[in-house]
Computed example of a mutant assay.
Amino acid sequence: MHTSAHLLASTPDQLLPARELMAFTLASYIILVPLGIALPLITLVWSGLVSAVASQWICGAARGRSALTSPDVDTRG
């Protein structure tokens, strides 16, 4: 019957560095994979919001409204 001391003494020298490398790799993937999925989605949403606000501002400026006035206030008189 094997005891725990015998099992610990019979482990290879490279087992601990291999486990550390595996833990680092797994932790990196846990962080990087969600970012690889979330960042493109955030970029698409942000660009859609920016383009919507920019087009609203450009349309308001084309109508002679100030950027500080609300869209329902007519400043032309």
Rank of each mutant, 00 (worst) to 15 (best):
G48Q: 10
P71F: 00
S51D: 08
A9P: 09
D72E: 12
L35Q: 10
A23W: 06
C59K: 15
P17Y: 02
L21Y: 05
P71K: 00
D13T: 15
G77P: 01
P40S: 06
A9L: 09
V50K: 07
S4N: 05
L32A: 12
M22S: 13
A62D: 06
S55A: 03
I42E: 04
R19F: 01
A54L: 13
T3F: 00
A9N: 14
I42W: 03
L68P: 09
F24K: 15
A62H: 07
A62C: 07
V73D: 04
T3W: 00
W46Y: 11
P17Q: 03
L26Q: 13
L8S: 11
L49H: 06
A18Y: 04
L44E: 13
T25H: 02
L68R: 15
R65H: 09
I31D: 01
I58R: 09
T3L: 00
H2T: 12
S55N: 05
W46K: 14
W57H: 06
C59M: 14
D13K: 15
L35Y: 07
L7F: 05
L15F: 03
E20P: 00
M1P: 07
T11W: 00
T75A: 01
P17F: 01
I31H: 01
L8H: 10
A67F: 05
R65I: 02
A54T: 15
L32H: 05
L21K: 14
A38T: 14
P17I: 04
I42T: 13
L26D: 11
V45N: 02
P40C: 02
H2M: 07
M22Q: 15
C59I: 15
G36V: 06
T3C: 01
A18I: 11
T11V: 07
Y29V: 15
E20I: 13
Q14M: 12
M1Q: 08
A62W: 04
D72Q: 13
A38R: 10
S4L: 10
R76V: 02
L8R: 12
A38H: 06
H2L: 08
H6F: 07
I31R: 03
L21G: 10
P71M: 00
V50W: 04
P17T: 05
L49Q: 11
I37V: 14
L41A: 09
T25F: 00
F24T: 14
Y29P: 11
S70C: 02
D13Q: 15
S51W: 03
S28K: 14
A54P: 04
L21F: 05
